[in-house]
Amino acid sequence: MAAESAQVFTLPGWQGSGPTHWQTRWEALHDFQRVEQHDWQRPLRGDWSARLDEVVGDAAGPVVLVAHSLGCVLTAWWAAHSRHAHRVKAALLVAPPDVAQPPLNHILRGWAPVARQPLLFSAAVLASSNDPYCSLAQARALARSWGAGFEDLGPLGHVNAESGLGDWPEGHAALRRLMAQAGC
C-alpha cells in the first residue's frame, strides 16, 4: 500500500490548533484533514469520540491519525470502543496530557480515566521533558500501556504553537517513519 493511499487526519486537543500550530501547518502543507469537533472549548468525550468514529467510518481507505494533547486521549478511548479501529494503520500521539491530575481533571471533566488498552495499530508517543500537562514518566507509561513506541523530544513545552516549532520537520519525519513501519 502506497503512502498516498492513506488518509491522514489531525486530531487537535482542547481549544483546537490555531494558525501557527504545527498541526494546522501540516494540514496546509501535506493536505491532511482536520477532524472538526462541535465544541473545542467544552470537549465532551462521547461527542468527540462519535465524531471521530463518523470520520474514520466514512474514510475511503486506510487511515493515519496525528493527534495532539487531548487528541491522544481521544484516540485511545475511541480505539478501545470503536468497530472502525481496524481501519487505522498508524497514529502519531504527540504530548498526551495527564487528564487525571490538577488542573486538567477540573477543566476536562469526564476524560479520566484514560483508556490503557493496547492499540490495535502502530503508534508512537512523542513527549516533551518539560510539558506542563504531563510528566515524561507518565507519557512513557501511557506509551507502554498503548503498546506504542516512545520518543523524548527534550524541552519543548506542550509541543504546541508556543513551542515555536513552525512546520516541525522533525515531527513530520517521525510520522513518515511510523507510516513506513506500518506499511502505509
Rank of each mutant, 00 (worst) to 15 (best):
M1C: 12
A2G: 11
V8A: 05
T10P: 02
W14N: 00
G16T: 11
G16P: 09
G16E: 07
S17A: 13
S17D: 04
G18A: 12
H21G: 01
Q23R: 01
T24Y: 07
T24G: 06
R25V: 15
R25Q: 11
W26P: 02
R34Y: 12
R34L: 07
R34N: 06
D39E: 14
D39F: 15
L44Y: 13
G46N: 03
D47A: 14
W48C: 02
L52S: 01
E54K: 03
A60I: 12
V64S: 00
A67L: 08
L70I: 09
C72P: 03
C72G: 04
L74V: 04
T75Q: 05
A80Q: 11
H81W: 08
H81V: 06
R83I: 12
H84K: 03
H84C: 06
H86E: 14
H86D: 14
A91Y: 06
A91K: 00
L93A: 00
L93Y: 08
D98C: 04
V99Y: 04
A100K: 09
A100M: 05
Q101G: 10
Q101N: 08
L104G: 05
L108Q: 06
L108A: 09
G110V: 13
G110P: 06
G110H: 15
G110N: 12
A112P: 02
A115P: 00
P118F: 03
S122A: 14
S122K: 04
A123G: 08
A124F: 01
L126N: 02
A127T: 05
A127C: 06
S128R: 03
N130G: 02
N130E: 08
P132D: 11
Y133R: 00
Y133I: 03
S135T: 15
L136K: 03
Q138E: 14
A141M: 07
A143D: 11
A143N: 09
G147I: 10
G154D: 12
N160F: 01
G164T: 14
G164K: 08
G166W: 14
P169E: 13
P169N: 09
G171C: 04
R177C: 10
A180F: 09
Q181D: 14
C184E: 04
